[in-house]
Amino acid sequence: MTDYTSKSTNLYLVAHLMPTEKLGIHGSFDFNLSEAALDEVQIPDSAALVAIGVPAGWFASHSYDYSQMSTYSDFDYELLKLNFGVEYLLSPKITFTADLDYADLKDNQGYVYGNETGSFYMIRSGFRLKL
């Protein structure tokens, strides 16, 4: 029997500010930490269990090392997401908007798909028109 544990912690903050009647500011912070691990698997020595009375050497090919096996189930991610944006009313019918999204993933284990550490940012800007 073996134990498997996974843990996930999430922290967030979302803010909306309106310093003036024409200016709106928003931002968010999101941090997630996810970990999982399998306890070391204790596998009995199959050769010792079944080799009684069997000619010597028959189970030489059963000499396995399972010590690293459980580590392949480990994962350990840290994901940070940030957003910051502004909206400015240029006229009653036209609003300027700008946003920045940033995400950073730190993969401390490399799980199935290899090390997936990476980051990404997006800048978005435009005009909202009321017609």
Binding site: G118, S119, F120, I123, S125, G126, F127
Partner: peptide, 15 residues
Amino acid sequence: LGGHTTEFTDNTKKV
């Protein structure tokens, strides 16, 4: 009406 620009560093698959 607008546009966006994206930039990735290292592995893009998860992030």
